[in-house]
């Protein structure tokens, strides 16, 4: 029974994905269909049209194993080993440095602003 439920839940997510892709296509948006579909689901939950309980088993299964679904794309890295064997390795260095900067600076700005807010609340 749980198995059927999970299948139905995932089918519902596919329906939202399909809608998201359709909206992206019709309005020629640069935001991908999966992100639009996520926003649709958020509004459906927020407005109470869809109850969290209705889609619980399937969605929690997907969320628990989120990284699994990115493995096939990641394996695609092997197609580019040649590019990164020579000077191209510097492109990896650039990507890693830039990623470190993004993580550090964005987190730092958010955290500083929160602390200021917390201090203001005390005053």
């Amino acid at each position: 029974m749980d198995f059927i439920r999970i299948i139905l839940h995932i089918a519902f997510l596919y329906l939202l994905l399909f809608l998201g892709n359709a909206v992206q296509d019709i309005f020629q948006l640069s935001i991908p269909g999966s992100v639009l579909g996520m926003l649709f689901l958020f509004f459906l939950l927020k407005s109470g049209i869809v109850k969290l309980d209705w889609i619980k088993e399937g969605t929690s299964l997907l969320l628990k194993h989120l990284t699994l679904f990115f493995i096939p794309v990641t394996v695609g890295f092997m197609e580019y080993l040649d590019l990164f064997s020579g000077r191209g390795i510097l492109l990896l260095v650039v990507t890693i440095l830039s990623t470190a900067l993004v993580m550090g600076l964005s987190g730092f700005v958010s955290e500083r602003l929160v602390k200021r807010k917390e201090v203001q609340q005390y005053e």
Partner: peptide, 20 residues
């Protein structure tokens, strides 16, 4: 691999739940 990859889209949509 594509059979696993097809679940990437629905998994991204499921991220609405922690957000909610």
């Amino acid at each position: 691999g594509q059979w696993i990859e097809v679940l990437m889209g629905p998994a991204v949509i499921a991220l609405a739940i922690p957000l909610y």
